[in-house]
Every structure is written in structure tokens, then in C-alpha cells.
Amino acid sequence: MNPFSYERPETVPDAVRLAAASARARYLGGGTNLVDLMRETVERPDALVDVTGLSQGIEARGDGGLVIGAGVRNTAVAADRAVRTRFPVLSRAILAGASGQIRNMATVGGNIMQRTRCTYFYDDAARCNKRAPGAGCDAVDGFNRIHAVLGASPACVATHPSDMCVALAALDAVVHLDGPVGRRSIPLTDLHRLPGDRPDIETELAPGELITAVELPPLAFAARSTYRKVRDRASYAFALVSVGAAIDVQDGMVRDVRLALGGVAHKPWRAWKAEAALRGGPATEASFRHAAETELADAAPLSHNAFKIDLAVRTVTAVLSELTGAAA
């Protein structure tokens, strides 16, 4: 691990000022991903700004929305009474991720900013455009069973590992930022980038910008929402495919729906096409399957991961059927 300085500021402006002092500074949350990457020398910050004491609390707004501080631990979000009743998909997504120990450490901001678990990204004997831009990608023609089927590029086929972000993408979450040029907000679905030819640039955050909060706008029908994760073992594994969904059905017709996928792309994948196909149509298993197939129509499998396309279609169909009680 390379040497670094350490500061634990008491305010967000102090944190932003400290991070601006070095181009290689990094904000430190629970450290569950960054410390590991520093040990592997994939990450080599020269300054750590510990933001775990900042941006605390979950504000349950009267209009049904929520504002979750970026420093809140994952366990605390999942256990929060308002999150559990208004947005159960978020509780379930968080609880489907990592282990009890890691959820106690990890923060909301750190979860959003965590990096891919592509094994070639971690292996400094492998070529990786994300770790060393221009070096090439050993995953494209390598063992790519866990990799992306949507939105990938010849430069990078890695996936975003977060479960929490899949729920946030489905719920139209807005991410609040503070930084050297002031405060701004960005939809979670616009925060992470597709890899293109610069997979090393993973988000739209400007240098020195800090996530301070995540806002969930009111969505009454999200009280009936859920998350399903398919993985290689029953617990404590990253997703092969995951689905976060909320659906509003009246008289057998889909009035509105929110749907996002994990494990399939470089970012949490909001299923806009499937949602459009579902709205106004019948809430039947056949229409759920058709919508999922519409979303996956552009999927491009690699040598080892074509199974993810069928798996995604089936998981979307199953989750929507479960939420609506549609006949299987």
C-alpha cells in the first residue's frame, strides 16, 4: 500500500477543501472497497479524507419522500422504518448485498462509488483498460461469465457490483453533490457512465466532488416493491442478475412501473424500454416476459455469459409476477 495522509474533517466544506489539495486525494467511507484496492495498489491515493462522520441521518419527508445522508451505514438504511415501509426494494437490495459485517461498515456514498469486481481489474498481471487506460482488456476474450451483456464496449465489459444502486436507479433517486464549484444534484441513473473508450472514468463526478445525500422522491406504489438477486451461492456473493421493481396495477392493467437490473452492465441498468412496453398494458405474465425481452433485445453476450440474457428475462418476469400475483 502506498503512503497517504489522513484527515477527518468535521464539515463538508472542510472535506471538499482538504480533498482539493491533491489531485490524488480520495474520500474515505467505510473503506470496504477502497482499502482493499489500495492494498492491491489498484488505487494509490496520496491523501484520504475520512467523510464517515459527515452527512448523517435519514429524513422522512411529509410528502412521502426520503433524504438519506451519504454517511449513513448500509445496515442503518436497510433497517430504517421509513425505508422499509415506503421503499422496501431499497431495504431488500441492501440486505441482499455483502455480509452483515460489511453492511455495518459501508456507507451510502461508498456503496455508490464502489468499483467493479471484475477479476481482471484486480489482477495486475492482466491487461485492464479501467486500471491502466489503453492497456487492453483480458476479460473480453477471457473468462467472462460474470461480465456485462448490456452497454459494454470493446474496451471494457465489467459490471457495476452494487445492489443498492439498482434499487436507487429504479426509484428515480437523485444524488446530491458538493464540491469545489458548489452544490448540484444529478439523477442516479445519470451518475454512472457506460464504459465507451474510457472505462477508467466511471462517474460524472467532477474532481473533488463529494456525495452528500441521496434523495428518493415520493412514489406511493413503491410500498409494493421488491428486489431479487440471482447468484452462485445462496448468500454473500455478487449478482449474476438482479432485479429491482415496483409496479402499480389497477383493474388488471399496469398504471405505472419502475424496473432496474443489476449484474448486467457497467452501471445500474434502468429498464426504460421494458417500462414503456408495460405501461398501459395488461398485468400478465406474457406481457411481463415480452417487456423483459424488449429490454434485452440489444444484449450482446460474450463467450461465457449468454445465460445472463435468459436469466434476466426470467427474473424480471418472475419478480413482476410475484408483485402483481399474476398467474405463473
Binding site: 489522513y6 474515505l28 470496504t32 482499502v35 452483515g100 459485517q101 460489511i102
Partner: peptide
């Protein structure tokens, strides 16, 4: 009272 992985924790924190 809360369980964590001490290997992923920087002691200074």
C-alpha cells in the same frame, strides 16, 4: 457492539 471486518478497517478510523 457492532461486528466489522477488522482487515478492511484502517485502524486510524
Amino acid at each position: 457492539g457492532e461486528r466489522i471486518n477488522s482487515c478492511l478497517a484502517l485502524a486510524v478510523q
